[in-house]
Amino acid sequence: MSITLVAVVLALVLGHVAPALVASFRQYAWYGAWLRWLGERSGGAGVWQARYGIVLAMVPVLLVVALLQWMLDGPLYGLPGLLFDIVVLVYAWGPRDLDVDVEAVIDAHDASTRRAAIARLGLTGEAATLDGPALVEAVFVNAMQRWFGVLFWFLLLGPVGAVLYRLSVLATQDECASTLPEENRLGARALKTVLDWPVAQLMTLAMALVGNFDTVFTAWREAGGTRFQLGTGFLGYVARASVRCELAEEAEEYAEEGMVQAMRELPELRDAMSLVWRILLLWLALLAVFVIGGWVS
């Protein structure tokens, strides 16, 4: 777990200090080329056309990562394994820094620039012109796909888990998904949903702890989070409710103090990013507690 703490801090710091270097390192075009090659070799038949054909693409990559993970864990007191773990987590993190993309939306001064910035959060077409609730949900979906999903599966499975999650996300995005047969594409989405579900539940729990617990719990229950049904739609619903509550509480505090609240542009987006940071800090604080507990014991 100490490796995870170091790697996450490095991923965040490098993304701000050397964004060009990190962007050049996080290149996933090879995966799209690998999917196209498998599609060409399948000849329109076979397992590749089936619902979980995406496994054919993932397993060889994951086996290589697992082999390296095993081979590097022993020599030199595990130092090569430590470096490998950090490199893999930094590679799977992102691919862009969420807070940088959010700031780009906030700092955009014209409609076209803002639409382009919003598109980097996954909102395109008519959705790219929206603000408020749609942006809040986009921030949390991106936080799950860029940060928390990678972190959770790295904690469970090590580098293999981080790579598994990143490949599952890539397989459902337009550039790669368009190369997959229909059934294969549906299977890739189902796999990603399975990987996302526990992450979304833990993000919601952390949101309740760093925000308004009653609001989060009520929204989570209303959105069906209590049902053991794979799906992450409740995360966006809970995030919107939590942000609304925090903005209302902030306005009430200003009113009680007899102050006029300065109107900020896109306050929902700013508050959503603040909430995501608090969730991440809580996760890292819990990791630090486990690390300290391990050292003490």
Score class of each variant (00 low, 15 high):
Ala177Ser: 11
Asp85Ile: 00
Gly187Glu: 08
Leu156Asn: 00
Arg96Pro: 01
Val90Glu: 00
Ala171Asp: 05
Gly94Met: 08
Gly81Ala: 12
Val87Ala: 15
Pro95His: 04
Gln145Tyr: 05
Gly94Phe: 07
Leu135Gly: 02
Ala116Met: 05
Pro181Glu: 10
Asn142Arg: 14
Asp110Pro: 08
Asp85Arg: 11
Leu82Asn: 03
Arg96Ser: 09
Asp107Ser: 11
Leu156Phe: 09
Val65Thr: 12
Glu137Phe: 04
Ile118Phe: 03
Leu155His: 01
Thr129Ser: 15
Asp110Arg: 09
Val163Phe: 04
Val160Ser: 03
Gly125Asn: 09
Val65Glu: 05
Leu155Val: 14
Asp174Thr: 15
Leu121Glu: 07
Val105Trp: 04
Ala138Ile: 11
Ala143Asp: 14
Leu68Tyr: 03
Val100Leu: 15
Leu82Arg: 05
Arg185Tyr: 05
Gly158Asp: 07
Leu123Val: 07
Tyr77Gln: 13
Ala117His: 12
Ala128Tyr: 09
Trp70Gln: 07
Asp110Thr: 05
Met144Ser: 13
Gly74Gln: 14
Asp101Leu: 15
Val163Pro: 01
Val87Cys: 10
Trp147Met: 10
Met71Asn: 02
Val139Asn: 01
Val88Leu: 07
Ser168Thr: 12
His109Ile: 10
Leu76Lys: 02
Gly81Cys: 13
Leu79Thr: 12
Asp101Asn: 13
Leu89Gln: 04
Phe152Pro: 00
Phe154Lys: 00
Arg120Ile: 04
Ala177Met: 06
Gly81Gln: 09
Asp99Ile: 04
Phe84Ser: 02
Val88Pro: 00
Pro159Gly: 04
Pro181Phe: 02
Val139Lys: 00
Ala128Ile: 08
Asp101Gly: 06
Ala127Trp: 01
Thr129Arg: 09
Ala119Asn: 05
Gly78Tyr: 06
Tyr165Asp: 08
Asp99His: 15
Ala111Pro: 00
Ala134Leu: 12
Asp131Phe: 11
Glu175Asp: 15
Leu164Arg: 03
Ala108Lys: 08
Cys176Val: 15
Val136Ala: 02
Pro181Ala: 09
Leu156Met: 13
Leu167Ala: 01
Met144Pro: 00
Val169Met: 03
Asp97Trp: 00
Arg166Ala: 08
Phe152Val: 05
Val90Leu: 06
Val100Gln: 15
Leu156Ser: 02
Val87Tyr: 00
His109Cys: 08
Asp97Leu: 08
Asp174Pro: 06
Gln145Cys: 02
Ala108Met: 05
